[in-house]
Amino acid sequence: MLLANKTALITGASKGIGRAVALAFAKEGAQVILLARSMDLLEKLKSEIDASAVSKAIIFQADVRKYDELKKVFDELNQNKIYIDVLVNNAGIMKDAVIQMVQQQLIHDIYETNVFGTISASQLAVKSMLKKRGGSIINLTSIVGVHGNLGQSVYASSKSAVIGFTKSLSKELASLNIRVNAVAPGFIDTEMTQSMDQRFHEKNIQSIGMKRIGTPDDVARTILFLASDLSAYVTGQVIGVDGGMII
């Protein structure tokens, strides 16, 4: 098993890519700690994992935008001497608007989740990983964080910030045996993209070299690689999972 004896914390774990990651990690022997805002969905996922995986899942209701809630999770884990080897900063939101239609609240919503949440969870996780003498942080960015996209200046810039954070943090932590990488999904079949206008949906499929939408499992497998020792010498990288999408 690729993640035997490893403990992994996943934010935004209740659905989409986060859920796929939780299932993939548990299947590979990891003890998974799952965070999300919806306890109902987390409890369903926990039941699914507990029925088949080696370790029981631990779940917490927490909003990554609220530092105090994240800290409470890590404090509880630390008190129980549960230290993490892997952090997947998956929680994220996407809202589109051309620049003249961007309201201040939209900027705050996107940055507080995608950027502040990622930085705060990483800061707390590093403290835990130092107890394990190493670890792996995987941040979810996006293809638009690399290339940009019309109507997504706020969202794309938040994902670009995640890339800058990833690259800088990887330099800070490399000598401490903590790797930091990012995964940049393209067009993936999740609730986030299902709400998209059908015309954009078709247009997006046509821009993908492989001519199919990606699945959460496609992304989860790349995250699994970065979490495992298969990628022991990989840090500071942004790996695209986009089927050859052109933006």
């Binding site: 404090d75 630390n78 590093v126 403290k127 130092l130 107890k131 800070e172 000598s175 401490l176």
Partner: peptide
């Protein structure tokens, strides 16, 4: 600054504090 992070972690372990 990097070894400072290690130091803090080791102090936490040695004295069982956060």
């Amino acid at each position: 600054s990097i070894s400072h992070m290690v130091l803090i972690s080791r102090l936490e372990e040695a004295f069982d504090v956060s």
